[in-house]
């Protein structure tokens, strides 16, 4: 099939970008979207033009590196699918395909279709962990966890941190991403000791990064390649109110004897 691509090209974070038309000829319907771009890039190289830069790594839908807003939809038209697992049979010959990077102030474009997602890492660093030193924790089976809880925590834990939620959100809010981690650890007993600190810190960091606010439109859920439910956002909201009321301001530390 032949496609007309409209691709965002931007030299670096400082320069302005623009949409550029690139023709993709003889695309195999069996190739993945990224493989289609590989072929386009080889052709561009042959013409002496710089290839289109895009993030990708595992190409099996789990690392979360690939992104791309395709015809307005993060990860393209297939539900519950990352761009790397999107295949060209989802497109028709002659179609115009718009390819843009994630758009959010907190996810600035580095080059072409690549954005800087370190804001996501900083949100996790603010509190997305259980403080457990490596050493000799209690036996793994010492604390049974009801299966429904373990399963629910898992449903949240499948987040791949790709950023599609923030890209899809009309307000550029990554609530689904933040909620997935808060919710996972709020459900599991191991996460309980730090639950107030965690949610306050992560939500606060999300704000500091300059993301928008949730308006419950659920675009994130529709775009999420791992089909994470907005139920976790509701749980995060609960966690947040609970923590806002219960958590006392930190006191000054004092040394031991």
């Amino acid at each position: 099939m032949d496609l007309t691509l409209h691709v965002w090209r931007q030299k670096n974070s400082k320069s302005d970008g623009h949409m550029e038309i690139v023709e993709a000829k003889d695309v195999s319907e069996h190739s993945s979207f990224l493989e289609m771009l590989d072929v386009v890039n080889e052709n561009l190289l042959g013409q002496g033009k710089e290839p289109i830069a895009f993030d990708h790594d595992c190409r099996e839908g789990i690392c979360g590196a690939c992104s791309l807003v395709i015809n307005g939809e993060p990860h393209g038209p297939e539900y519950g699918t990352t761009t790397c697992q999107l295949h060209m049979r989802s497109f028709k010959s002659g179609q115009h395909v718009y390819i843009e990077p994630w758009r959010a102030r907190a996810l600035p474009v580095l080059k072409d279709l690549i954005v800087d997602r370190t804001s996501f890492d900083r949100i996790q660093q603010a509190g997305g962990f259980v403080s457990s030193n490596t050493g000799s924790p209690q036996d793994a089976n010492a604390l049974p966890i009801p299966k429904p809880d373990a399963d629910k925590a898992f449903d949240a834990a499948v987040c791949i941190g790709c950023g599609a939620c923030a890209a899809a959100c009309k307000n550029a809010s990554p609530m689904l991403f933040v909620a997935a981690k808060v919710s996972q650890l709020a459900i599991l007993p191991q996460g309980k000791p730090e639950r107030e600190r965690r949610v306050l810190a992560m939500v606060d960091q999300m704000k500091k990064e300059g993301f928008g606010n949730c308006t419950n439109q659920y675009e994130c859920e529709a775009a999420c390649p791992k089909e994470i439910s907005v139920e976790h956002i509701a749980r995060m909201n609960r966690e947040y109110f609970r923590a806002a009321i219960l958590e006392e301001p930190e006191k000054q530390g004092h040394g031991g004897d």
């Binding site: 259980v130 924790p137 299966k147 834990a157």
Partner: peptide, 13 residues
Amino acid sequence: IDQCVAQGVPFAR
């Protein structure tokens, strides 16, 4: 396994 469970890794149960 002990370490991972302590970190909140949701293993199958």
